[in-house]
Design a protein around this nucleic acid. Structure first.
Lengths: 225, 225
DNA sequence: TCAAAAGTGTTCAGGGTACACCCATGG
DNA sequence: CCATGGGTGTACCCTGAACACTTTTGA
């Protein structure tokens, strides 16, 4: 290997995952209790290090896979965090990603093996490193994308009721929405279609189940809620 | 220094700057012709490597300073680029930043020393590495911020005419704007105030000069153009 | 029979868009 | 005196917000 850049220093490059899910309808993050120094015993985001021959994106997907057993999860980069002293152990430049996952295809065993628990956004404990800043930026990035692109469905089961969908939007945007206005907007989007099934678990009457049709969405991508 | 992470590999961490400016009213980027391998002789973004004891943000500011002689320039991170083979020389993880600068406080000597030239966005030559993707994402990031936060003023002189401001918005958003509607919106923002001076260079009649008042803006930050 | 969630239209106001003419001045 | 850019107000439309009652059915 030719050495073009040999006079420059090299650094550990980490990835940290802000894993969002709906816990009892509330937006939550998967946190782990660190079992290694530094910051052992503190709550922290799930993270890891980029390896040789592995892209940074792949490293994030690997960390998520190791924790949850899931791949094909929606992830988006939040940004790089590069303060000199951000890691009290050694110099690490870390790239944060957020992931959206639905609790119904979810390996609870693998997660508990890793000392991981779901914590609500509004009940976050004290976190080590610069993880609070990462979470804040991830929330900002995710919320901004949320109302303009159909990423919210990643947090729901494949089929869902309109009430579930509305309460998802309410809990993420942090505001209540008028039911009729919400359903009107959904109807204008023709990418959300009835499955024909009825969900009887949430009410006596039963609610129609819907699914997101990405084929229709991709044919004319418009989305505004 | 304790070695917590010693079993993980380390990488060069680079920064690349997408430096935006207005060249004859057109949105342009400052490119340099590389004088080193790899990709010697190709057009490229201005970049550098993060050094020991230097944050990634600081490295970006340093690279910008070395090229332009300017500090206190508006910069925002675009994101990390971490594909394994993104640099044909060696493995480098790079963090991209965009900068907005006004050509009136600008050191043309220092820039020409670095083989740098302004190139219009719509006349971009073939670029090495993953720089095209960086530029695309920088444009996207910058444009999104542009209509909701008062960052555009960084591209203009301290005082400017409303016609200059309108043409700035038109060239960045890529659409023409009705003059009366634009000026109505500007008037609603009370953070843009007359300096009292008149600019006679652009027209026979002369146009009133305005400035952005960040004190007023910060007291009630609203901004929507 | 009643509690609890599902489902369904209309009205109104405010913001955004479209649009055309006079002014001041240097050459 | 005329060419060039500077500066100004109104009418309309349409999107977005507010708002209440009926339906279904399991317990």
């Amino acid at each position: 290997m030719t050495e073009f850049y040999g006079h420059n220093p090299r650094f550990y490059v980490g990835v940290d995952c802000i894993i969002f899910g709906l816990n009892e309808g509330k937006l939550s993050i998967l946190l782990t209790k660190r079992r290694f120094e530094p910051e052992k015993g503190k709550w922290s985001l799930m993270g890891g290090f980029v390896q040789e021959g592995e892209s940074v994106d792949d490293a994030a997907r690997r960390v998520l896979y190791q924790l949850t057993g899931l791949d094909n999860v929606f992830m988006e980069q939040v940004g790089a965090f590069g303060a000199v002293d951000r890691d009290p152990g050694e110099r690490v430049v870390s790239v944060a990603y957020y992931a959206l996952l639905s609790l119904d295809d979810f390996d609870f065993e693998s997660v508990s093996e890793h000392n991981a628990v779901w914590v609500r956004i509004d009940e976050m404990p004290a976190l080590g490193f610069d993880h609070p800043a990462m979470i804040e930026k991830a929330l900002f990035t995710m919320r901004r994308k949320f109302s303009t692109e159909p990423i919210g469905f990643n947090l729901l089961p494949h089929s869902f009721t309109l009430s579930q969908l509305q309460s998802l939007y309410e809990s993420i945007l942090g505001e209540t929405i008028d039911k009729r206005n919400f359903r009107k907007r959904i109807a204008d989007l023709d990418c959300i279609e009835k499955t024909g099934e009825i969900d009887k678990t949430g009410s006596r009457r039963g609610a129609a189940l819907y699914r997101f049709n990405d084929r229709i969405y991709n044919s004319h991508p418009k989305f505004k809620i």
